[in-house]
């Protein structure tokens, strides 16, 4: 998996034995490197390094010389070093994943039960944790909407408290209301999706009106998208109703097992 690879760290050395960059050059060079995804330490002394790292400097001893290079050329040099050191590539994945606020989390497992994509799991102490963050669907904050404590954050979300802003009592009421909305739609949204699909299959199996069945499913998806701020493309990429049902059962079973281990009931 790409995420497991170690990232390249760059030291931009401007110590006594190197020619310093001007403020403008420093800004332009750092910007060029950051926009390619690199981590950069601007340093005037020898720095601790971890993992794969490389030092750039103007005439610095033991460093890769960047004298006369433009910011773009420095970034190209970083790319060469990255390849040589077999460090991670950047930019292939938008880092979108849930971050749990353990000060708020009550370990109720609703997120584990809700997520169809195996993002959540439990640790050895049956404590909820994010296990497969790159399974998360980009821009989908749906699991944070089912959390009764507003304990699930997506730092890149547009608004609070999901983005990590302070949680207010009004937010908690609003979160509960959103769960109520899903309850109106059939309790568990995935269960609702499955049931509505079954009803549609049964009804339209007789009527043989596939257009109506499709319209029904689309109507259902629009409701889900609005209730959970779920990107339509995420909903449209959901597997078949049978597969949804299978995954939902699997997720519920995991949550029930974790709750049982914690001495709680899933009812």
């Amino acid at each position: 998996m790409a995420l497991a690879a170690t990232a390249l760290h760059i030291h931009l050395y401007e110590g006594p034995d190197a020619v310093p960059l001007s403020a403008d050059e420093r800004f332009a060079t750092l910007t060029a490197l950051l926009e390619r995804g690199y981590t950069v330490a601007r340093t005037s002394s020898t720095s601790p390094s971890e993992g794969r790292s490389v030092t750039f400097a103007r005439s610095g001893q033991g460093a890769r010389d960047i004298t006369g290079l433009t910011p773009t050329q420095v970034a190209d040099l970083a790319e060469t070093a990255r390849t040589e050191l077999d460090a991670a590539t950047h930019g292939g994945w938008k880092p979108w994943f849930p971050v749990i606020d353990y000060d708020r989390c009550t370990n109720c497992m609703q997120c584990l039960s809700f997520c169809l994509f195996g993002v959540y799991g439990v640790d050895g102490d049956s404590r909820i944790q994010v296990q497969n963050q790159d399974n998360c669907k980009t821009n989908c904050p749906a699991c944070s909407r089912v959390c009764p404590e507003a304990a699930i954050m997506f730092p890149k979300y547009k608004s609070g408290p999901i983005n990590g802003d302070l949680v207010s009592d009004a937010d908690l009421s609003r979160e509960k209301m959103k769960v109520d909305i899903s309850a109106l739609l059939g309790g568990d949204v995935y269960e609702m999706l499955r049931l509505r699909s079954q009803k549609a299959q049964s009804r339209f199996g007789k009527e043989r009106d596939s257009d109506k069945a499709l319209a029904e499913r689309q109507k259902c998806l629009v409701k889900l998208a609005q209730a959970g701020d779920i990107p339509v493309e995420v909903l449209m990429s959901l597997p078949s109703p049978d597969e949804i049902a299978r995954r939902a059962e699997e997720a519920k079973a995991k949550a029930a097992a974790a709750l049982a281990a914690n001495g709680k009931s899933s009812a």
Binding site: A4, A7, F27, T31, E35, T39, A41, R42, H90
Partner: peptide, 26 residues
């Protein structure tokens, strides 16, 4: 970023803290 560069101080700049956290960067 420009202010930090102009101040001439030592600092670390990361492209994206979320990505670093996802990688469990040391």
């Amino acid at each position: 970023l420009r202010s930090l560069c102009e101040a001439g101080v030592d600092f670390e700049a990361v492209a994206d803290l979320c990505e670093m956290a996802a990688r469990k960067d040391p």
